[in-house]
Simulated scan of single mutants.
Amino acid sequence: MMKQDIRVEFTSAKKPKPDPHDLAFGRIFTDHMFVMDYDADQGWYDPRIIPYQSISMDPAAMVYHYGQTVFEGLKAYVTKDQEVLLFRPEKNMERLNQSNDRLCIPLIDEELVLEGLKQLVAIDKDWIPKAEGTSLYIRPFIIATEPFLGVAASHTYKLFIILSPVGSYYKEGIKPVKIAVENEFVRAVKGGTGNAKTAGNYASSLKAQQVAEEKGFSQVLWLDGIEKKYIEEVGSMNIFFKISGEIVTPELNGSILEGITRNSVITLLKHWGLTVSERKISIDEIIQAHRDGRLEETFGTGTAAVISPVGELIWNDESLVIGSGETGEISKKLYDTITGIQKGAEADVFGWTTEVASLSETK
């Protein structure tokens, strides 16, 4: 694929910046966005950064009817030295193409899209909030745009990257959450789209999440779709358990999303000399470990929260309180280390961060 120049059109009407101390998640968007088009004759073409704006599409666009779409999520951070950092963005581009392949969407040039992402962040770097716990959320996504009511892969697509300043996932600091083990609905099955980051996975999870929230739970713990026995994910995050000193996480099996934070956590734990196992783990094993006093910690991992400690699991009306309902030592250390690396406060021994720009630079 020939390298393409990214053209830039700056906005003539900048929007006011929000109060960094009063930010919700995903409600406010910056001045610009990255766009690129695809058709079967030209391939991916016309990469551009333009003013953030609404888009117009034919009502028959295939994304509306058959859900052919994929997305990613990552963040940009400001260091104490006013540098703008991304955390492992190349892994997001790699996973985007994995999702593309599963959804029959043409593969992107990962280097080109990452360069467009960097340029976009550099242009809108003044939108990155600097208050404690805040960041700039980055959402790349692709939609099928061909107007055709037929079950087939589209011949045209649009790729977008939009930016949103976001507050801390935890308003009062990192706190353990209460989780319901889901025994009716399933998130995904092997051979389905569970290992792709596609909209349908999240739409199908809403009912279980709604029921759980009505009962006072923060999230649901998903079991496998065949036997409803083996643990897969928690909400939209990967899940880890510390049992008798060993840290266990479900192995990637075709229905579990390969989280970038998950991969980072495994790398860090091994670096610290801890025993980490990726294997099948049943809810029965977790219940027995709790009854035996061997279940020491449980936490979820993902881009939005980084680390989400689990203080209590509910299974068939049985309450499993973990670590007295407090944040565990490993959960806290992982959260502090990863967020420290992301913000440039911790040594990046793995080369995970990418510098985009300095806030002192001019456009």
Rank of each mutant, 00 (worst) to 15 (best):
A347Q: 13
Y202Q: 05
V78K: 10
P140Q: 11
I260H: 06
S56F: 02
I247W: 07
L268V: 05
K332S: 00
P176L: 02
N253R: 15
A203D: 09
D292H: 08
F87H: 02
Q82D: 14
R48F: 11
T69C: 12
R294C: 04
Y66M: 01
G302K: 13
G150Q: 14
T198S: 15
V310A: 08
K197L: 13
A60F: 05
D22K: 09
I247H: 03
E94C: 12
F160W: 06
S205Q: 08
L159F: 13
A347M: 15
E297L: 03
W222D: 02
K190E: 02
S331L: 08
T339Q: 13
K207A: 07
G323V: 05
L252E: 10
T339W: 05
M1Q: 11
L96T: 15
G194Q: 09
L96E: 07
E251F: 09
H21P: 00
I314P: 06
E258N: 14
A131H: 04
Y66C: 03
L252F: 13
S360T: 10
G43C: 08
K118Q: 13
I341S: 00
S308H: 03
I341N: 02
D101N: 10
F240G: 01
I138W: 06
K178Q: 09
F217T: 08
D58N: 14
I239A: 05
I338Q: 05
K14G: 08
D31Q: 11
G216Y: 14
P18N: 01
F87T: 00
D317H: 06
E278C: 08
K14F: 11
I307V: 10
S358N: 14
A212L: 02
R187M: 03
T327R: 13
W127M: 08
D41N: 14
W222Q: 03
T337K: 12
F10R: 15
F185V: 10
D5P: 01
I142R: 12
K215I: 06
M1I: 02
S358M: 15
S205N: 04
A144G: 08
K270I: 07
V70I: 15
E72A: 07
K175M: 05
T303W: 01
T79D: 00
N195V: 05
V181K: 05
A196P: 05
E115C: 12
A153H: 04
I179W: 07
H155W: 03
F29P: 12
K228H: 08
T267F: 01
M93N: 06
R279C: 09
P250C: 04
F217L: 12
Q119C: 05
E182I: 12
Q209A: 14
M57R: 14
G43W: 12
H155A: 11
I314G: 02
K178G: 02
E111P: 07
K91T: 13
G300N: 07
A144S: 09
I322A: 11
W44L: 14
A152C: 13
N183L: 09
N263R: 15
D292V: 09
K242Y: 07
E346D: 05
L320Q: 04
V166W: 01
N263W: 10
Y45L: 08
E278H: 12
V35K: 15
H271F: 04
I179E: 02
S331R: 14
P129M: 01
W315A: 04
M57E: 12
L120H: 02
G340E: 00
M237K: 00
D37G: 15
L359T: 08
S277E: 07
P176C: 09
F217D: 01
E9M: 14
E361Y: 07
G351V: 11
E9L: 15
